[in-house]
């Protein structure tokens, strides 16, 4: 007979079931990116995922000297997220560096899954963005399953166009002429990193994760809400100088970040109140970087900065305890 302390039954979730749930949620966006960016997207995704898994296995086995466990699927997620965050014409060797940095520096150096303070994929992405700015900002234009990889035709992202236009003092109407319509952006027909363009597919993935109970609404809603409110105020104050909120939400990595990267379990706060603070922080920082900073895009930086605040948030923002009321 077995003896153990209660409880004696367990829920259906396990680490791997949650991780594979996230992977399933990323599939629609991946398929959309395959359609628009073709062969390049497939090569980048495969390289990134396979190398992330390989690095995790090698580091666990030979550096940490533990039994490697790839079955939990977290390396696949990191690989996928890294691929989602780079342009589809990125040379393989750069992806390998990114994936090594993501897994090695971003995750395993802190002790592996559960201990990393920063989102590993974003660490890799930001490392690449700073080290290889030229390659990282040449965005292939979307097509119908194009077969080019390295020599794909490139162009600027809508955010880049917007930033440059505003800096050059062009009228808003003219700038809007040069970028895809909101509807096109929602489907994903624009230049950008491979996973960030497909708004609709990302939304489907997010709804799936909410339905499965993998994530809660707190982070996505607070990120999107704060971006919408902040840019909305700016837009209302000066429609000529600031783009509308919907433009900000649909472009760049906002949806990808809000649904998949800010909600990363390990690097987000534990309490729901904390998660809202975290989300609002990401939203505000994103807009600040985009509108007032030098980079056209700021989601990655915003998430990494807020990641650094997570221990502080966890320490000071506690869930409301039951019975925390004055005795009547």
């Amino acid at each position: 007979m077995k003896i153990s302390p209660s409880p004696h039954n367990y829920g259906k979730d396990s680490v791997s079931s949650l991780m594979y749930g996230v992977i399933v949620a990323m599939i629609p966006a991946m398929l959309v990116s395959f359609y628009f960016f073709g062969l390049g997207a497939i090569i980048v995704t495969l390289t990134s995922v396979v190398s992330a898994m390989a690095f995790e296995w090698l580091i666990t086995k030979y550096l940490l000297k533990k039994e490697p466990s790839l079955i939990d699927g977290s390396a696949i997620i990191t690989g996928l997220l890294l691929a989602f965050n780079v342009p589809s014409n990125l040379p393989i060797w750069i992806i390998l560096i990114g994936s090594l940095v993501a897994i090695g520096m971003g995750k395993m150096s802190f002790g592996g899954l559960g201990n990393n303070p920063f989102n590993p994929a974003l660490v890799g992405r930001v490392f690449l963005l700073i080290s290889f700015p030229v390659q990282m900002t040449k965005w292939p234009l979307p097509g119908n399953f194009p077969m080019e990889y390295a020599d794909a035709a490139t162009g600027a992202t809508p955010l880049g166009v917007m930033k440059e236009g505003i800096n050059n003092g062009e009228p808003m109407a003219d700038i809007l002429q040069n970028i895809p319509s909101h509807m096109q952006m929602f489907y994903g027909q624009m230049g950008g990193s491979l996973g960030e363009v497909a708004g609709l597919a990302l939304l489907i993935g997010c709804l799936y994760m909410l339905f499965r109970g993998i994530i809660t609404w707190h982070i996505p809603v607070s990120v999107l809400g704060s971006i919408a409110i902040f840019t909305g105020i700016l837009h209302l104050a000066s429609p000529e100088k600031f783009a509308d909120p919907l433009f900000h939400i649909l472009t760049g990595g906002v949806l990808l970040g809000a649904f998949f990267m800010a909600t990363d379990y390990v690097t987000s706060p534990m309490s729901q109140k904390g998660q809202i603070v975290f989300g609002v922080g990401i939203g505000v920082l994103t807009v600040v970087i985009r509108v007032f900073g030098a980079y056209p895009e700021g989601v990655s930086f915003a998430i990494l900065i807020m990641n650094a605040f997570v221990p502080l948030i966890n320490n000071y923002i506690k869930p409301k305890r039951f019975g925390e009321v004055k005795v009547a």
């Binding site: 979730d13 559960g114 390990v266």
Partner: peptide, 10 residues
């Protein structure tokens, strides 16, 4: 396994 800080317990 290691805690993945999913916050489900909270």
């Amino acid at each position: 396994a290691a805690c993945i800080r999913c916050a489900k317990c909270v």
